[in-house]
Simulated scan of single mutants.
Amino acid sequence: MRNTPLILSPQTKGVLAGIGACTIWGLSPMFYKQVAHVPAIEVLAHRTVWSLLFFGGVLAVQGRLGLVRAALDTPAKLGTMALASLMIGINWFLFIWAVGAGRTTESSLGYYILPLVAVVIGRVVFGEALKPSQWLAVALATGAVVLLTVGLQAPPWIARTLAVSFGLYGLIKKRLDVGPVVSVTAEVLLMVPIALAVMLQSEHRGGSAFHAGGETMAILLVSGLITALPLILFSYAARRVRMTSLGLVQYLNPTLQFSCAVFVFGELFTGWHKIAFGLIWVALAIYAASMFAQDRAARRAAIAAAVSGTGVT
């Protein structure tokens, strides 16, 4: 008897791609921890340069390099792309720095509250209505941040900056009529002059990563792949998976970051952290339930409209 080949549906392929992307992002602290001895700004410089080479190679194979120039061909496009580049640069740098500084727990908190920050941005910028359950989720997340501020006597600025910078990045990307790979290629292209300046300055001071040994350089070279691969996988998933499902898959990223911080790096996890993270998890559960309810309502409305359009009663 012949073995029947396993055929996966587009939806299943999309979910698997999303899981793959979020797994790479979630485990990336273990990757960047290996170069904690290199200044974060220099790691970011290498990540930028090698990412550009990887993305440029992908687009060259696809014959789409010209789209990068088109994405920057007017002052308005250039300005918008430069702003996106600034936001993602801040986000990348702070994440790399947090991992090296032993504050991955706080970075994971930032990515946990990111969906709720996005909800607030949607309300403020686009006037999107929020359900009472969504307001409750936002209130719980806000309470968690306030609790950490009071309990630790210091604001969780890393978490807030990561969440806000990526939330604003998403807002800017929403206004761009450019595919994700082309967009990120343009963004890192704008960052490259600064990245090269950082590399040259570090080399001039004699502290360049180029002299840190073959293992360090190999890790930095791979940072281009670590940056590019999950984005490509996530882009593939976004075209095939409902946003509700994709939103839930994304929680895998901060969960793995959190696991790395507490169980692998042994970072401090106080009682204040336990209460705050508990509130965040409750908030996310409420938010996820609300998103599922919206998704079901939208599908019922679509089915009803389809039935009505065919005249079936």
Score class of each variant (00 low, 15 high):
Tyr112Leu: 02
Tyr112Thr: 06
Leu114Lys: 04
Leu114Phe: 12
Pro115Val: 12
Pro115Gly: 05
Pro115Lys: 14
Val117Thr: 11
Ala118Arg: 11
Val120Glu: 11
Val120Gly: 14
Gly122Leu: 05
Gly122Lys: 03
Gly122Thr: 03
Arg123Pro: 04
Val124Thr: 10
Val124Gly: 01
Val124Ile: 14
Val125Leu: 08
Val125Trp: 07
Phe126Ile: 12
Phe126Pro: 05
Phe126Met: 06
Gly127His: 11
Glu128Val: 00
Glu128Gly: 04
Ala129Thr: 14
Leu130His: 12
Lys131Ile: 09
Lys131Ser: 01
Gln134Val: 12
Trp135Tyr: 07
Trp135Asp: 03
Trp135Met: 04
Trp135Ser: 05
Leu136Asp: 07
Leu136Lys: 07
Val138Gly: 03
Ala139Trp: 02
Ala141Val: 15
Ala141Arg: 02
Thr142His: 00
Thr142Cys: 14
Gly143Gln: 07
Ala144Phe: 08
Ala144Ser: 15
Val145Gly: 05
Val145Glu: 01
Leu147Arg: 04
Leu147Phe: 08
Thr149Asn: 09
Thr149Ser: 15
Val150Trp: 04
Leu152Phe: 03
Leu152Met: 02
Pro155Trp: 09
Pro155Leu: 06
Pro155Cys: 10
Pro156Gly: 08
Pro156Val: 11
Pro156Glu: 09
Pro156Phe: 04
Ile158Lys: 00
Ala159Cys: 04
Ala159Leu: 04
Ala159Ile: 06
Arg160Gln: 15
Thr161Pro: 05
Ala163Val: 08
Val164Ile: 03
Ser165Gln: 05
Phe166Met: 03
Leu168Tyr: 00
Gly170Phe: 11
Leu171Arg: 00
Ile172Thr: 01
Ile172Asn: 06
Lys173His: 11
Lys173Met: 14
Lys173Gly: 04
Lys174Arg: 14
Lys174Ser: 08
Leu176Lys: 03
Leu176His: 03
Asp177Pro: 04
Val178Ala: 07
Val178Met: 12
Gly179Arg: 06
Val181His: 10
Val182His: 14
Ser183Gly: 02
Thr185His: 13
Ala186Ile: 10
Ala186Glu: 03
Ala186His: 10
Glu187Leu: 13
Leu189Trp: 12
Leu190Met: 01
Leu190Ile: 06
Leu190Arg: 09
Leu190Gly: 02
Leu190Pro: 06
Leu190Asp: 06
Val192Pro: 04
Val192Leu: 15
Pro193Ser: 09
Pro193Lys: 02
Leu196Phe: 13
Leu196Gln: 09
Ala197His: 05
Val198Tyr: 03
Val198Asn: 07
Leu200Trp: 13
Leu200Asn: 01
Gln201Glu: 05
Gln201Asn: 06
Glu203Arg: 11
Glu203Asn: 12
Arg205Phe: 07
Arg205His: 13
Gly206Phe: 10
Gly206Pro: 11
Gly207Val: 15
Ala209Pro: 01
Phe210Leu: 12
Ala212Asp: 02
Ala212Gln: 06
Gly213Lys: 10
Glu215Arg: 14
Glu215Asn: 11
Thr216Trp: 08
Thr216Gln: 03
Met217Ala: 13
Met217Glu: 06
